Computed example of a mutant assay.
Amino acid sequence: MTDNEYERVVTSTSDITEENIAKIAELFPDVVTEVEKTDGMATVIDFDVLKAKLGDVAEGMRERYQFTWPGKRAAKAEARIPIDKTMRPVLERSKDWDVTQNLYIEGDNLDALKILRETYAGKVKLIYIDPPYNTGHDFIYKDDFRKTAAEGRAENGDFDDEGARLVTNLETNGRFHSDWCSMIYPRLLLARDLLTDDGVIFISIDDGEQANLRKICDEVFGSGNFVANLIWKSTPGSNTGTMIKTVTETVMTYCKNISSVQFETTRCLIESATPLSDL
C-alpha cells in the first residue's frame, strides 16, 4: 500500500443510528422530522407518528416478555457509536500479502467488528466465536476509570492503552452476569450485520452464561433463527464444577435467515479438536 493509498483510508466508521433512521425513512417517509440541537439541525424519527402507524405498542410500565439487565441500553448504544479508527497492514510481519486470502487482526474485537462492518457487512458466510465463559477469572472487562493511569496503578490493577482499568469479573461483583451480557451484546449485534442472508454463527459456551446467551441470541438473531445447541465432547474433566466434572460443552448455533439456509445433515456430533469447517 502506497503513501497516497494510506491517505485515502477512511479513519472512522459509519454512524449506525443514521443508517437505521434511513431504513425507517424508506418504509415510512412521513415519520422523519428535524429538530434543533446544540450543533445544528438533525434528522430524527417522530415516534408519535411512528406509533400511530404501528398501532398497539409495548411501552412504559406495560407488562411484556423481555430480557434485560443493568447496562443493556448502554451496551446496545455501544454497537451504534462510530469510532475514529481504522486498520493498517503490518507488511513487515505479513506473509504473501499480495496473494493471501486471510487476515489476522490484532486489537479490541469490538473496534475490529465496527471497522470490518464497513467493508464486509452482509458478506460473511460463517462466524465462530469462543467468548470468555465468565468463570470469575477468564473474563476481564473495562471498568469506568476517571483517575490518571499513574494514580490507578498506585492502587494496583492492570490498564489498557487508553487508561481504562481492566478488572477480573469475580462472582462477588454485584454485576457479575450483567457485565458479561453487556460485553457480548454489542459484539453479537455487529456480528449479525456481517453475516450473509444464509450466514450462520457458532458460539462456544459453558453452563455459566448459556441461558443468558440464548436469550440474547433470540433477541439479536430472532428465536426463529435458532438452529441447535451442538454438544461436543471436550477433554474429560476439563470443566470442573463445584460438585461434578463434566465432559461436554455447547456450541450455540443461529442463522441470519433460517429460510435461506440448508443443512446437509440433521445429526451432527462435534468431537474434540474437530474444526467447524469439517462439519
Rank of each mutant, 00 (worst) to 15 (best):
G107W: 02
D138N: 11
D278W: 14
N134Q: 01
L230H: 00
E151D: 12
A58N: 13
I231K: 06
K37Y: 10
F221V: 02
C217S: 11
V32G: 05
G71P: 01
T274G: 15
F139K: 04
A121Y: 04
K147F: 10
K51G: 02
A58G: 07
D206Y: 08
T242W: 05
V10W: 06
T119V: 08
S272R: 05
T43P: 05
I45Q: 11
Y6L: 09
L195P: 04
E92I: 07
A22D: 08
I45R: 09
T148N: 15
N169A: 04
F263K: 04
A149Y: 13
T196W: 02
L188E: 00
Q66D: 11
T119E: 13
I105L: 15
R73F: 04
G174F: 04
R146Y: 12
N20C: 07
S14M: 14
F221G: 10
M252Q: 06
K142I: 00
M183A: 02
S260G: 03
I244C: 06
R117G: 02
R64E: 11
G122V: 00
K72I: 14
I184R: 01
R214D: 11
G122D: 00
K245D: 13
I83K: 02
A58S: 12
E26W: 03
N134R: 02
S238P: 00
M1V: 08
H137N: 12
I270T: 00
G122H: 00
S94E: 05
T86Q: 06
A273G: 05
T248K: 12
N169L: 02
T274D: 15
L54H: 07
I105V: 09
A52M: 14
D278Y: 13
F202K: 15
E264S: 10
A75H: 07
M1W: 05
F226L: 07
E26V: 07
I21R: 01
T265G: 07
D207C: 03
I203N: 03
L126S: 10
T119G: 08
I231F: 04
I129L: 14
L195C: 02
